[in-house]
Amino acid sequence: MPLTKKEISDIARLARLQLSEAELTLFSSQLSDILEYADRLSQVDLAQADEIAGILPDNAPLRDDIPGSSLSLEQSLGNAASTEGRQFKVPPVLDV
């Protein structure tokens, strides 16, 4: 079932992607093709399959919590488009 432009637009909003009209049209056909191909997975007999297959043999080990060096303030802010004092600066998150 092809994805509608409305569905594509909803996914784009979830993905925080602003898409152009042309991209909406293109992605609705391309994603539909890819998902149709992915539907082959519905033919697999998953009765014998594990719930979620990790690829490590055991759980990932935890390391000891030893304090170490970290990035300086200057390094941390060095790639930001906008900073103020010791902070990253962003536009308002909430309308107040």
Partner: peptide, 9 residues
């Protein structure tokens, strides 16, 4: 979830 299971197989 289905893809993860297929990965296990």
């Amino acid at each position: 979830a289905r893809a993860q299971k297929a990965r296990g197989l």
